[in-house]
Design a protein around this nucleic acid. Structure first.
Length: 292
DNA sequence: ATCCAGGTGTCCT
DNA sequence: AGGACACATGGA
């Protein structure tokens, strides 16, 4: 990505396949705060970044070339040609064509594996608003203070060591509910190396999924989310209630088992299944496709 | 008020 | 193997 440095900002002109609203609001991440239209504050990798986007310009505020080249280029997956991905997906069928054309600014963020793991354990049986609140509380209580913007203090997501200090009761006090023992189990197994998060990127996909599912509270859906959003495994297809509804609406026209939908999607979308899932998920959620 | 939320573990048959 | 049901909490 070509950019210009101006004061403490990085400016990008005429960039396509990038819409900060699509990227952050599509459901893949939780630590962002909308300031105004196409103007967001986000927390990732112990940094606070403000991104504003106009018609032909993206501004990454208060950053520098070093952070941009070493953190944000990877985080926003800027090395990948989303134009080509969208072209291939659009040619698969009309439904994907529609989703891709409506939500064409999505990019799959390269998030931290550990943060993704805990975030998606928390996500089960909760709506996105509440997931964001819980992750915020967890960061406030166990993370590290990283700075202040407009009189609001921000905290990094807790490290494995930091979160390991929390007991099940501590976590229940933070209102994570029945997920408390799951978080404790994740801390224990990751810190003991019973579960190896680093090798998820290179394992056979089924093996990687099983590795994550050693953790209590991690089933096929959470594992797929961690692999897609936190381990660059784009061949997975996280299948939740939303994806189930839209897939039934488009491809089955009747009540269908999640397992059958998942198998169909992995086969149908192949190595781009993860991208397909995210376009479909965001599109379906935004337009309430298949919602009763 | 009842139901549901980016599911999963456990207990049944 | 596959189907109910419980699980915490908050918002519609």
């Amino acid at each position: 990505m070509e950019y210009i440095v101006e004061n403490n900002n990085i400016l990008v002109n005429d960039y396509i396949d990038f819409d900060i609203e699509h990227i952050l609001e599509c459901g893949q991440c939780f630590r962002f705060y909308k300031q105004s239209d196409k103007d967001y504050l986000l927390i990732a990798y112990d940094k606070i970044l403000r991104v504003t986007q106009g018609d032909n310009k993206i501004i990454f505020h208060n950053t520098n070339t070093n952070d941009f080249d070493t953190i944000w280029t990877n985080y926003f997956d800027l090395g990948r040609d989303y134009g080509n991905i969208k072209k291939v997906l659009s040619n698969i069928d009309e439904h994907l064509h529609k989703a891709v054309s409506e939500k064409g600014g999505i990019r799959i963020l390269q998030q931290d594996t550990w943060e993704t793991l805990i975030s998606f354990i928390i996500s089960q049986n909760k709506n996105i608003t509440h997931i964001k609140i819980l992750i915020e509380e967890l960061s406030k209580k166990y993370g590290t203070y990283i700075g202040e913007e407009d009189n609001v203090k921000y905290y990094s997501f807790p490290t494995i060591e930091q979160l390991s200090a929390a007991s099940e009761q501590d976590l229940r006090d933070l209102k994570v509910g029945f997920r408390a023992p799951y978080i404790v189990d994740a801390c224990r197994k990751v810190i003991n190396k019973e579960v190896d998060l680093v090798s998820l990127a290179s394992m056979e996909i089924e093996e990687a999924k099983n590795e994550l599912m050693k953790i209590k509270g991690v089933g096929p859906k959470v594992a797929d989310c961690v692999l897609l959003f936190g381990a660059k495994r784009y061949e997975v297809f996280p299948t939740d209630v939303w994806v189930k509804r839209i897939m039934e609406h488009y491809y089955f026209n009747k009540d269908t088992k999640i397992k059958a939908i998942h198998e169909f999607a992995v086969e149908h979308y192949g190595t781009l299944a993860g991208f397909a899932q995210q376009f479909l998920f965001y599109y379906a959620r935004d337009f309430k496709i298949g919602k009763k």
